[in-house]
Design a protein around this nucleic acid. Structure first.
Lengths: 152, 152
DNA sequence: ATTTAATTCCCCACATTCCCCCACAAAAAA
DNA sequence: TTTTTTGTGGGGGAATGTGGGGAATTAAAT
């Protein structure tokens, strides 16, 4: 399975098109290079891009854990799915992201792709810099999580 | 598993390519000599090079300990992973390191590979000399660390 | 209903960067 | 010395990234 890492700058053009970095595109499984699933991140001002396979597995996981006849469960499912949409990759390797989503993450042309192992986050560049933890905080909190094991 | 020790001088060429010392390359497991993972060290002005296997184990550890549905956890994961990238080793045994990373560690052509057991640190030569502790400090602090052992 | 505007989509064109390949210097081994 | 391995350098073609024109479709306004 692909492992997306790193961060790559890109520019959205005036039409809202954004080039998927080739290094990421190449990691997509054969046959999943035509489109992605995009979803608003409810917690952060970013969009999450899922390869088809990863998205499908996530959906399967939902079906398994949520009860089809429980209305609360169905509400959760609906809300999760409603903030997502398919993104076709055009012949140049770009995706077109509709204005309202770009506005939601506050994009001003400069964007940042950030690898998150099985998926990719898409940030406004400035917003990402702003959301990053200072390296001290980062090291401390990561160390806590990882239970005092070294993490370098 | 490989045990990288020692330090080896090398030169970055104008294109930002750096030769991985053969003595290190030979220690890479069979089948892991095509590429490495490089990561910015957030605390020191150096880059860390991981053999694939070592990196994969680290990633597995993250996945196990961080909750996919917890946004704090995901932010930590993203921040860790975003400062890393794959480095392909070319047919001459070199890796190409992008300008921005070289700048971050202040490389001026002369670099130093420093073995760190399961991984390798890459320093600007001058910066490394400058960051080293004096041998007095070193001995003292090492002694402190090694005495209050071993609890966890 | 008709016009106008905005968005989406499908082309084509071009600049720049990257990466593959070859050649060779320098050092080590035979 | 000759041969092999290790380390350095550069040219050029392909791939990547950027931009724009203008249909087709949808939405808004008159």
């Amino acid at each position: 399975m692909a492992t997306f890492i790193g961060n790559i700058e890109a520019k959205a053009d005036v039409k809202g098109r954004i080039f998927i970095p080739a290094s990421y595109r190449k990691q997509l499984p054969e046959g999943e290079r035509e489109r992605l699933v995009m979803r608003m991140d409810p917690n952060n001002a970013c969009l999450i891009l899922y390869p088809e396979g990863v998205w499908n597995r996530k959906v399967a996981d939902f079906k398994e854990k949520l009860d089809e006849w429980n209305s609360d469960d169905q509400m959760l499912l609906m809300q999760f799915v409603s903030d997502a949409e398919w993104l076709d990759i055009d012949s140049q390797g770009r995706v077109l992201i509709s204005k309202r989503y770009l506005q939601q993450i506050g994009v001003s042309l400069d964007v940042l792709f950030v690898g998150m192992l099985d998926r990719i986050a898409l940030w406004d560049k400035a917003a990402y810099e702003h959301s990053r933890l200072s390296s001290n905080d980062f090291a401390k909190r990561l160390a806590e999580k990882m239970m005092k094991k070294s993490v370098d």
